[in-house]
Amino acid sequence: METVTQTPTSAADERVRPNPWMRAGRWIAFLLVAGLIALLAWGVVKANNGPVNSGLAPDFTLTTFDGRVITLSQLRGQVVVVNFWASWCVPCRQEADYLERTWRQYQDRGVVFIGVNWVDTDKEARVFLDEFGITYINGPDLGTRIAQAYRIRGIPETFFVDKAGQLRAMKIGPFAPPELENRIDELLKEQ
């Protein structure tokens, strides 16, 4: 009888066994796809996040059109109204006069209004400020960094910061009397 010594692995098994490079390639591909999916998921979550509306108000520094430098965190102890606007925004025109009147009414009572000019040209922004006689702090949002920190969805959009620097309310869209007074009075009453 023919005797054949049995080898531990047959030639066929040897051929189909994946080499280490193939296994590494598969892992890299898997990690890459997982990374891309994670990146996409992060993007979707970020895009669906609405404006910030609670917690400590994101701090920012604004250089105003007249060259002053204002930092939000240095305004603690005062109620701050942060309004995002642009000269090309029609609803911003509707509320511009009301914002200025309210600011004049409250300026000596520990209230600060900050106008953040969003994706606008200097020239048109200044024309807008002159047209409505706006005197409260106003400056451009360079690089749209402030808008990104507050995750605004459009303009006008307004945020109310209490004396402790906490975000207490926000509104998308233009204001009509007496909305501003109501919200500011509420925050002024707090110690």
Partner: peptide
């Protein structure tokens, strides 16, 4: 390329698969 190589190797193995030998 690796997957195709794997398939090709499997195919070759199937074609060249030896019939039962005494040693098996």
């Amino acid at each position: 390329a690796q997957i195709l190589r794997g398939w090709k190797a499997k195919h070759r193995a199937a074609v060249a698969a030896p019939t039962a030998q005494a040693g098996d």
